[in-house]
Nucleic acid binder design. Structure first.
Lengths: 187, 187
DNA sequence: ACCTGAACACCGTTCAAGT
DNA sequence: ACCTGAACACCGTTCAAGT
């Protein structure tokens, strides 16, 4: 009985969650599946495409938010959900960051943000700026948090006293203030 | 005649600029210096510390901006200089992102942003939120731009029509609107 | 102060061939 | 449809020993 593409993907996510991104090698993944490394290349053309599929899986459960909410609350909700999704998996932010940078990820969650801003009355340009600022904040700050956590676990850094949840909330509130101001002034 | 720590650092930056981060291996760096890989470990305890030193070098030329400028113009200036510094070297943003995430980088440029915001009358908390939002935008968006450029160079992606300079300017303007609003309302 | 030699324990990827 | 076998061209790091 052979493995399906989905078996590979699921096992990869398990390794990621248990041991982190640095320990997710094609060779180790193959071993976990009871198969030779070369077998993986029947399911995915290369490691990058596997990582992209994993990133899409991690962000896949983030919803668009309710259209009945106020537009700014909706952005807040999507951003918070996105952050929670990244935090749910070890090194989730780094994974998504790599996928985003490579441009291969289908980042529907970014579109949710743009849509919410546009429904709030922002121009296309302002809506896009909001999306960009929010996405970079979520991914970048969460990546810092998870990398820090990983280093503390190894003992390569002493525990810091930073409160990432508050830093995130403050940064998001600042951006939303900017977005509301843009809406008020027309453009 | 032996190599100094500075020779190693300078050669590493040359390789980075000419071939990108993926091609910067300890073995290749050693070859370029005419030395065995193990020799590098006399100068740096490991690769990560070399990368951190490189990141500090890349951001080292970014100044604090003039204290005589308006606070928001000053933030704009520092952020723009930072972006320019990252763009000056191949994969500069990814390098700095890794250093920042690891927490080993001495990121004085972040302090310039916080200081400027505080001088503008923002609370410590708002000043910090401004710094966070700006830093994540600069690093994240520039990383996207450079990764995309690298992939187009290899032929792994067709040229996109995105205008990163405009995206950056718009995102920064939005954040600064938020910061100015915070100042006006007191907190 | 700076480097060699030799080793250890790994990587991603290709491709003909097998079932 | 899915996998093996074997190979290619690499990695970072350690450590005793050399000059």
């Amino acid at each position: 009985m052979g493995n399906s593409r989905d078996d590979v993907l699921r096992t990869a996510l398990e390794i990621l969650h248990r041991y982190g991104l640095a320990d997710l090698s094609m060779r180790r993944l193959a071993a976990e599946l009871g198969v030779r490394p070369s077998a993986l290349y029947w399911h995915f053309p290369n490691k990058q495409s596997l990582l992209t599929a994993m990133a899409d899986e991690v962000l896949g459960r983030v919803g668009p938010g309710s259209a009945r909410m106020r537009w700014d609350h909706r952005i807040e909700r999507v951003a918070t959900d996105m952050r929670a999704a990244l935090l749910r998996v070890t090194d989730g932010a780094e994974l998504v960051s790599a996928g985003q940078a490579s441009g291969l990820s289908t980042t529907t969650v970014g579109d949710y943000l743009t849509d919410a801003a546009r429904h709030g009355g922002l121009s296309d340009r302002d809506a896009n700026a909001t999306r960009t600022a929010v996405c970079q904040l979520v991914i970048g700050l969460t990546m810092e948090q998870q990398t820090r956590a990983q280093m503390e676990r190894i003992g390569a850094a002493e525990p810091s006293d930073r409160d990432f949840d508050t830093e995130f909330a403050d940064g998001l509130a600042l951006i939303l203030d900017g977005a509301r101001h843009r809406r008020a002034t027309g453009h």
